[in-house]
Simulated scan of single mutants.
Amino acid sequence: MEVGTTRRIQPRADHRSSIVEAGTAACRLYGPAKTNVADIARLLGKSPASVYKIFASKAAILDAIAGNFFEADLRFAASACGELASVASRLKAIALGQHRLMLRARHGDSQMFDLIVLAAAGGWPSFRDHLKRLESYVRELVCTGIATGEFAPRNVDTAAACFCASIISLWDPRIIGALPLSHCQLSAHELASFAVAALRPSSRGEESMATRCGR
């Protein structure tokens, strides 16, 4: 790449980052529904036209803001559970850890939580990418668990997808936003434990019962 090209790209990247930062501030101040491009431009000290040179629409800006929030504030650190003894424990830890991040956003950053609810409801790329990251990490753990014999042999992609689908209520902001404020963490623990247990090898007694039941 030529030096001149590098110089052109860098200011554009910096401008994009500053728009996302200003947009985040505007969302927290006015809420995502009331935030407009003029508000963002005013916080930047620039014209709306300069913002539209980087983002084609307000929707594109909001999606970028949501993506940044998913990446920076709602990404459970895998290293936080890396020292746990079993793969099952690590899998449960990420399920519950991600859920706690969502609850923290709901209770402590309500305007941004409203934004990610919109992202989930609209199937925005930011939300889809967030779920893909989670499923990718789950897939790695399932693969490790099968390799070590902790989980039963099965199709890794299918097992990971089923696990994520079974606990989606812990990760989907639309569902979390509908929960009562007194929501008990115990039910989340029970759901995560149930989902992890489904990955373990069946005992002989369970296999015999499944055979008798025609499964």
Rank of each mutant, 00 (worst) to 15 (best):
G108N: 12
I9K: 14
E135K: 13
R28W: 04
A49P: 00
R90E: 00
G97C: 05
R100L: 07
L62E: 03
R174G: 14
A188W: 03
A41V: 02
E83C: 04
A152F: 05
I176T: 09
T158K: 14
I176G: 05
Y52F: 15
A60V: 08
L115H: 05
Y30K: 13
T211F: 11
L74R: 12
T144F: 00
N68E: 12
L29C: 08
T24S: 13
A60I: 03
D14L: 15
A93N: 03
L131G: 08
G4P: 00
P173M: 02
T24A: 13
K53L: 08
I168T: 12
F194H: 10
D129F: 01
L191Q: 15
G145L: 02
K92A: 12
G23L: 10
G149L: 09
V3T: 11
I61A: 04
D172F: 01
L74A: 11
A119R: 11
A56V: 07
S86P: 00
Y137V: 00
Y52S: 08
L131M: 11
A178S: 13
F194W: 13
A197R: 10
L181D: 14
G82V: 00
A78F: 06
E71A: 15
R215L: 14
Q185P: 00
V3Y: 11
L170C: 01
S110G: 03
R215S: 07
S50N: 11
D14I: 07
V51C: 04
F163P: 08
L101S: 03
R139K: 14
N155L: 05
A78T: 06
S110V: 13
A85D: 14
T144C: 09
R200K: 15
R28I: 04
C164T: 11
L141D: 06
M102L: 13
A78D: 06
S187R: 09
A195M: 05
K53W: 00
P48C: 02
S136G: 14
G108E: 15
